[in-house]
Simulated scan of single mutants.
Amino acid sequence: MSKQITTVSIFKRDSLSGKSWQFIAVAEAWVRLRKVAGQQFFKVMGKGLDGFNPTPDWSTYMHVQVWENEKVAQEYFDSSKFHNRLKEKADDYQLIFMRNVKARGQWARKNPFEESTELDDGNPLVFVLTRARIKLTFLKRFWDYVPQSQRDIVENEHVLFKAGVGEWPVTHMATMSLWDSADAINKFAYRNKAHKNAIRQTNALQWYAEELFSRFQPYASTGTMDQLNIESHLKKLVTADLTKG
């Protein structure tokens, strides 16, 4: 029975000096996060400009961390001087706790996510993480196609949060999105023409050297980013269901 959880920590600083400091903190994170008790996997990632633009948004960085269980994760966040220094200096900050629903593919030659045995049937929220390492020969063709393939997710009313992120600009890319239900994702994935065409293009051209798709159930959060306030979203969804009833 897997008690594994995944966390995403997001740090945002808007000033020029803050962005410079953030950039240095990224290099520091790669060193400090290598040996953390109870941590099974981690990645330090940057964010692109809005609209899944590959141009780096130097204000925002995040840590994706996979933990043996919630207890060891919470112990880290409570005691880590490094994490709390980043948190205190951030203009905006969010920490999200999630359990994996399913994952396929590989990230750094392995699938780090174990399907959780502790999912809550009453929680409809879904956090989607996709990532890919793009073959160099397909870079231009891939990025020329991105605006068309992502247009409908940008405009989708069921998407509560969306961002293009990555370990390295242009070649090692990922997306993060928060949806109000699995049904909304399935409709987008299987009925949306642009998305279905993107899948056909991917299968035909094989432009990824490595890829991973994963769904999570976010269940708790803390911070200042309203778009990623999990408790607030859950409360609104429950209220909407009661109103419909």
Rank of each mutant, 00 (worst) to 15 (best):
T6F: 11
S9W: 03
D14T: 07
G18P: 03
Q22C: 10
F23R: 00
I24N: 08
V26P: 09
V26T: 11
W30R: 08
R34C: 04
V36L: 12
Q40C: 15
K43N: 10
V44P: 04
V44T: 11
G46N: 08
K47V: 14
D57T: 09
D57K: 09
V64K: 06
V66S: 00
W67E: 08
N69Y: 14
N69Q: 13
K71L: 14
A73F: 00
S79K: 15
F82K: 09
F82P: 05
N84T: 10
L86T: 02
K87L: 14
K89D: 04
D91W: 10
F97G: 00
M98P: 01
R99N: 13
N100C: 12
V101N: 02
K102L: 08
R104V: 13
R109T: 07
R109Q: 11
K110P: 11
N111I: 00
T117M: 15
T117F: 15
E118A: 13
G122N: 08
G122C: 06
N123D: 08
V126D: 00
V128K: 04
R133T: 09
L136Q: 09
F138N: 01
L139Y: 07
R141N: 14
V146L: 07
R151N: 08
D152P: 00
I153S: 05
H158G: 15
F161H: 10
V165P: 03
V165H: 11
T171F: 01
T175Q: 12
M176S: 07
D180S: 07
A184I: 05
N186G: 03
K193T: 03
A194Y: 06
H195R: 10
A198E: 01
R200Q: 06
L205C: 08
A209E: 13
A209S: 11
F213W: 09
S214T: 08
P218A: 05
S221P: 02
T222L: 05
M225Y: 11
M225P: 07
Q227I: 01
N229I: 11
T243N: 13
T243Q: 14
